[in-house]
Nucleic acid binder design. Structure first.
Lengths: 239, 239
DNA sequence: GACGCTCATTGACCCACGTCAACCTCCGCA
DNA sequence: TGCGGAGGTTGACGTGGGTCAATGAGCGTC
């Protein structure tokens, strides 16, 4: 990933110096007042990633932090024999790259076409000193990520396949904010869902089919789910 | 848990107004200069928990944050049918209670006799505004907790029983800082280890025995492990 | 419009780990 | 010195989900 792929005002970021960025309200940048935004815009650059493209690998030096402005990313850890655990996925407004030491402790890869806003880590950290509201916002996000991580540990350590898939659908609905009975776009394909839920692709497929046959979900196509019975799904998720 | 069980300068905290606290260097409080400590001491109170005693339940209003000054605590999530996932354990110097919303998202229970220093959450948050270094320290801790959580997700989602137990022993050695070939005190009993690793108590027991027969660990007694072959154990942990 | 590719589904079989149960060890207590 | 309870170990067996393999559905392309 060469530096010059990132352009100030490039795809995904720094539109009119952050002022007009459409995900500002969703992102950490929303913690800053308009008068403070130029300081952020000054160190921002944007980029687009194509589906499947890698943003960074686990172990790469952690030189940048990012805000997702469009699309979706998955975060994952790999074992040497290829086993993979997806530890999370990011949607527009999400922040990426907290000071996990000097190297990234997971890899990040675009799922769909994705636009990002990049900030050099050192300069971003300096901004945290200048704007405590930004650091406060980050701490809040880190806390809720931790809560989500613990929920995921419960899922991975103790839930059955049916409970995992039901939980996943409900979590997704909560994240993208579904209206009643609306279809949800699945940000992950079956392989990724399997690696996120600690299952195999076959088990994910079988379990989707099971929940469909039980009438809890609809599967209009491979990339969509429909919540048909939220209560029953919550029951199935193991509450 | 009634308020008056917590005493300013009581067991576990606020010794000589934090100045002489023996875990200060290990804890978030170490981020403050001596001149700033009194502000912290002013809102601190201490308490001792007996083994098995509950600090708070999942769902309780999150009114306090804590520093562990002695002993050990486990954090866990429960399902309605009793299945349990231990999401972490805390040792002296660890911080507990980040702003996970208005209620605790996990339960916390003393493993051994445990001493804690308590800070009312609202007042503690006010201190964060006053001392950015404290907030910065918390963000750093939250980041490394997140990294640990992701490692645990990989363990729970993708590792075999043997890999999980080997990983656990190595992680423990890293946490308590073992000398070569020294015995480690296990902070968790078999039931807790099982709930931490997403296994059953029988599988944990069998796997300890397996690793012992393979010569990777020694088991001098039920509460200790000895690393006999660190390299081989790392291999077994799945790297 | 048929070929080839990717992704998903489905079926048959297998195995790592869970379940159930017996037993052992340690320790406090009488 | 024996009893009882808690925690741990071990064995026999069962099963949820993994593995392997075939098939299907969608889609780009020549």
């Amino acid at each position: 990933m060469s530096l010059d792929e990132w352009k100030p005002g490039g795809a995904g970021c720094a539109k009119a110096l952050c002022e007009e960025c459409e995900v500002r309200g969703l992102s950490v940048c929303g913690a800053l007042r308009s008068t403070e935004l130029p300081a952020l815009a000054a160190i921002a650059s944007g980029r687009r990633l194509e589906p499947g493209q890698t943003l960074f690998h686990e172990g790469d030096p952690a030189e940048d932090v990012f805000t997702v402005t469009g699309g979706a990313l998955k975060l994952f850890k790999l074992m040497s024999d290829g086993r993979r655990q997806i530890t999370g996925y990011l949607l527009p407004g999400d922040f990426l790259g907290l000071a996990y030491g000097s190297t990234y402790v997971f890899g990040a890869e675009a799922i769909s076409g994705t636009t990002l806003c990049r900030f050099p880590r050192r300069q971003f950290l300096r901004l945290l000193d200048e704007f405590p509201a930004l650091e406060h916002e980050l701490l809040g996000r880190a806390s809720s990520e931790l809560a989500a991580a613990q929920e995921q540990m419960l899922l991975l350590g103790r839930k059955t396949a049916r409970e995992r898939v039901a939980s996943f659908v409900l979590q997704l609905a909560g994240r993208v904010g579904s209206e009643h009975d609306a279809s949800l776009a699945l940000p992950l394909n079956r392989t990724d869902i399997a690696d996120y839920l600690g299952l195999t692709i076959e088990t994910v497929s079988r379990t989707f089919t099971l929940l469909r046959k039980e009438g809890l979900i609809g599967l209009p196509d491979k990339q969509q789910v429909r919540l048909l019975a939220r209560e029953a799904l919550q029951e199935a998720a193991g509450i």
